[in-house]
């Protein structure tokens, strides 16, 4: 039997902050949404004026406000982790509650936008622009809802490792929106 002590091999993956599986998820989500946004702009080539007319029915300012809400929510989540690492558990939980609350405000405004579009008779069938719009923003909204649940869970089970993983999911949702918002609301 070999009695030599095991030598610790360091891997480049060890330098990644947080849970490796969360990074796998982040990269997967970026690939999925990235492919969706590239497909959106590729289909736009076939009908740029139709896409411009469709985009004109969206409100960039309204989506900009929602962007600010999500950015601020991410800020609170990042602060929550910093506070937890300094053992300020109560303050960390309040910050997570604030982050999830702003997530709810984001969803409420998104709902207002969807109701407004539905009221104008705009559906996924109206134009390819709106097929992508509903698909990409709807899929992102589902992630926001999942993220709010995860923030609630890590506020409850507030081990620093849990909180790092949960807030990383929330930042991934933030990151996806920061790519989705300019392409659909400003460029489309």
């Amino acid at each position: 039997m070999d009695e030599r002590p095991a030598v610790e091999q360091s891997s480049p993956l060890d330098s990644l902050p947080g849970d490796l599986m969360m990074w796998v998820l982040i990269v997967s989500e970026l690939l999925v949404f990235g492919a969706g946004l590239a497909a959106f702009l590729a289909v736009r080539i076939t009908d740029p004026s139709g896409f411009a007319a469709a985009r004109a029915s969206l409100s960039p300012a309204f989506a900009g406000i929602n962007t600010f809400i999500l950015i601020t929510s991410g800020f609170l989540a990042a602060r929550a982790l910093n506070l937890r690492l300094r053992s300020r558990r109560s303050a960390a939980r309040w910050h997570l509650a604030g982050a999830a609350g702003l997530g709810a405000v984001f969803m409420a405004l998104k709902l207002v936008e969807y109701v407004e579009k539905a009221g104008e008779g705009i559906t996924t069938e109206t134009h390819p622009f709106f097929t992508f719009y509903y698909l990409l923003t709807g899929f992102h909204a589902a992630h926001v809802i999942a993220g709010m649940v995860i923030l609630g869970l890590v506020a409850w089970k507030d081990d620093p490792r849990n909180m790092e993983t949960g807030t990383a999911f929330w930042h991934m949702v933030d990151l996806v929106w920061l790519l989705l918002f300019p392409v659909i609301y400003l460029l489309g």
Partner: peptide
């Protein structure tokens, strides 16, 4: 983000 909206508009 605000600058992006302003540039677009």
């Amino acid at each position: 983000s605000a600058a992006s909206v302003m540039v677009a508009s």
